[in-house]
Every structure is written in structure tokens, then in C-alpha cells.
Write a protein that binds this DNA or RNA. Structure first.
Lengths: 137, 137
DNA sequence: CAGTATCCTTCATGATACTG
DNA sequence: CAGTATCATGAAGGATACTG
């Protein structure tokens, strides 16, 4: 190893990183779940009894763009977490709802969201103290 | 305000801290928590009894760069979720551990991480089916 | 209504090098 | 050991316009 060139070390690092990704699909899944829009979409669907329409979700989740909403819903549909039902009326009607798999997840994500809501004050206090101490130095 | 009932005050607090609302501080906090590195750092600290050193964390979390590890730890320290202890020896020793607040959160994030580990197979199957159906069209 | 397509900007991340 | 500093780049995300 001591005779490795920098290029060889870089190559080995790259391969090791790729291997890590390949052998650990769980990390990719965790990265998907660790997404603000995913949390909000799943929480919105969990909070609402029955299916929600595309525009309902857009209205409920203030600040989400059409692009991100569609993108997030597609990813969640692909992962089997939400179901999508198209009613070919005029105009078209599309409903989204959590699947069985999605419901097994939603409680966990909702808990994180509610933790954020419940502990916002404590975090704000901690930030103020940190900023004070940091500025003092 | 003096005529507000406790229920009304709670309701107002709930609305004010609704994570679904844009520009709500809770929304920003949720975005912070919805971070792959945050999940992994908190999970690593939660899994390990007692404090962990910077290099321990770097080794445990494969694929994290120094920059992201430091950045994540600083943010978590600022938010009062992890504590940082410097021992001015030579060489310097720095230990990180979850605070009380951090422990109240860690269980939730660990649950999400374990959900990802437990349901990876189902998600993989769902993806295959989705890709099949999509390609068929 | 429920998207798609495109452009464009900023921001997050990684690689690299340096330090008390 | 535990960082900090700097740079480069790709990708995330928003704005806008269009469509079946």
C-alpha cells in the first residue's frame, strides 16, 4: 500500500465508494426518505382520511412547486409507498393515497414532523445560546 | 389575548408551527432533520453507548466527507441535538454525544432508518414492477 | 385538472490542500 | 487528531409556458 500512487489511491477510493453504494441500497432508500417533500407529502396523506387529489396536496403543502410535487409523487409511487388512481372524466381526476407499505412508514415520518413542531422552541433557544457563545469568542 | 383559553392558545401555536406552511420555522427545522447525514450521524450516536470521537463517526459512516461530517455536527450542535466536548490533550480529542433533546429525537430517526433496512426488499419489488409497467407502455 | 417541458440559477456536495 | 479553507461541478429546485 505504501507504494500506491495518488492516482491509484483515488481509483481505489472511487471503486470503494461505488461498491458501498451497490452493496448498500438501504442508504439510497434512506436518502429518498430523508427528503423534506417526501415527509410532507406522506404526512399530508396520512393526516387526511381517504385519497387526496393532486391539487389538494398542492394546496395543503404550501410552497411546493408543481415540479417537486409531481417528482415526489412519482418517486413514492415507484417505491410502492403511494398509490395513484386516474379517473378518466373530463376534466381528469387523479387521486393519491398511501399503500399498505406507505402506512407502515407514515407513522414514523409523521412522528419526526411532529417532533419538529413540538420542539421548535427548544431548538430556537439552543440556537440563540450557540450564536451568543460563538459571537462572544 | 387575556381572554384566550388554553385550548385556543394551543390551537394558535399549532397553526403557527404547522410544518406544512411555507416560511414556518418548523418547516425549516423539518428540512434540517430530513437530511441523510443528519439521520446517519444521529443514528450512529444513538447506536453507540457513550460519546463518539470525530474519527469514530467518520469511520462508522462510510462515504461521508470531512466537510459534510463537520457541517452536520455543527448544525446539530447549534440546534442543541448533540453536545461537543473538547479535551485539550495532544493531540486534541473531541467527543460528540446526543443531548437530552437529541435522545428524544434519535428514536424517531432510527426508526426511519430501520424501516428502510426492513422494507428494502418490498421497495425493490415495487420499483421493478413500476419500471416494467412503465416500460410496457 | 393534472400534469409536461424547458430554461436558468443557486446551492449543496465532493475533492483537494493546508494547520494548530 | 480534528478540523479549516478554497475551488469546481453537478444537480436540485424554482419560474414559466404549454397541453390533453
Amino acid at each position: 500500500m505504501a507504494t500506491m500512487t495518488a492516482a491509484q489511491r483515488r481509483e481505489q477510493a472511487r471503486v470503494a465508494y461505488d461498491a458501498f453504494l451497490r452493496d448498500c441500497p438501504t442508504n439510497q432508500l434512506l436518502a429518498r426518505l430523508s427528503d423534506k417533500w417526501v415527509s410532507l407529502v406522506v404526512a399530508a396523506l396520512a393526516a387526511h382520511d381517504g385519497p387526496m387529489r393532486y391539487s389538494d396536496l398542492g394546496r395543503r403543502i404550501a410552497g411546493v412547486s408543481q415540479k417537486m410535487l409531481t417528482q415526489t409523487l412519482r418517486a413514492l409511487e415507484r417505491d410502492g409507498i403511494v398509490g395513484r388512481t386516474v379517473t378518466p372524466s373530463v376534466p381528469v381526476r387523479v387521486d393519491y393515497e398511501l399503500t399498505e407499505l406507505g402506512r407502515s412508514l407514515s407513522g414514523l415520518l409523521v412522528a419526526v414532523k411532529e417532533w419538529a413542531e413540538a420542539h421548535m422552541d427548544e431548538v430556537a433557544v439552543a440556537r440563540d445560546r450557540y450564536d451568543q457563545e460563538t459571537a462572544a469568542v
